[in-house]
Design a protein around this nucleic acid. Structure first.
Length: 223
DNA sequence: CCAGACGTTGTT
DNA sequence: GTCTGG
DNA sequence: CCAGACGTTGTT
DNA sequence: GTCTGG
């Protein structure tokens, strides 16, 4: 799955990659984004054309109970269009999750092999995400939140896990956000990213703690 | 008909 | 909103 | 995803 | 073991 990710690009790079008309004033690099924390996503503004970047909660909240128990950080791409929690969002609230890497923990590792890996692509990308606004019934601030779609692992990820996040190339950003895109077109984007365009690096356990959020989290493990 | 649930991981 | 269970 | 806290009774 | 916080 995808339970931790990074976003280290500068505002300038992000603005260019996502074609933002009005980039945020600043975007401090994040080396260790954990569930329930705020993270940057790009979506269409109400005009349905202009792209905007906002920082919202990772872990979808559509009801009170979503605040309890395991946060909804992922949604299965294969079934999202029939699950009540996700189906309407897949139609109308798709977003791009700004990221440049993610982490996988290999549970079942033989011997003393490293079991913690940082994954990157050679090319820029974004995760396919779904977002929503939830208004607490008791009143108070609305909560904006998102989750990341997952799909089958490619040959590389297969060694680490049985799921991987849906990774979109810049060429597909527009299609994913297009409010007029049909179900078939949207679904056609939800496939494993090719393994030969990705690299895995063994990491130390520094990134395990959500309290650590510095460049040392991405320091390769010296074998 | 109404009531109640509606998720993903991974682990066992 | 929609599906499942009773 | 992982980290970290968690409780009462009775003793100090 | 289980729940909360990040």
């Amino acid at each position: 799955m995808c339970g931790r990710f990074t976003r280290t690009k500068t505002v300038k790079e992000v603005a260019r990659l996502f074609e933002l008309a009005e980039p945020p004033p600043e975007l401090a690099p994040r080396y260790n984004i954990a569930p329930t924390q705020q993270a940057a996503v790009v979506g269409l503004k109400p005009d349905g054309v202009t792209r905007g970047l906002i920082q919202i909660r990772w872990g979808l909240v559509r009801e009170e109970r979503h605040l309890k128990g395991a946060p909804l950080v992922n949604a299965r791409a294969e079934t999202a269009d029939t699950r009540p929690t996700f189906s309407d969002l897949l139609e109308s609230r798709r977003c791009l999750v700004v990221a440049d890497g993610f982490v996988e923990w290999r549970k079942d590792h033989p011997g003393k092999d490293p079991h913690l890996f940082g994954l990157k692509s050679n090319e820029p990308f974004a995760f396919a995400g779904l977002w929503d606004v939830w208004h607490p019934p008791a009143g108070g601030k609305p909560i904006l939140s998102f989750c990341i779609l997952t799909t089958d692992p490619n040959e590389l990820l297969k060694q680490l896990h049985d799921r991987m996040p849906v990774i979109l190339r810049p060429d597909d950003f527009g299609r994913w956000l297009d409010p007029d895109a049909g179900t078939a077109e949207v679904r056609s984007l939800l496939h494993p990213y090719p393994a030969d365009e990705m690299t895995a690096v063994a990491l130390t356990t520094r990134i395990n703690s959500p309290r650590n959020d510095d460049v040392a989290c991405l320091e390769p493990l010296h074998v």
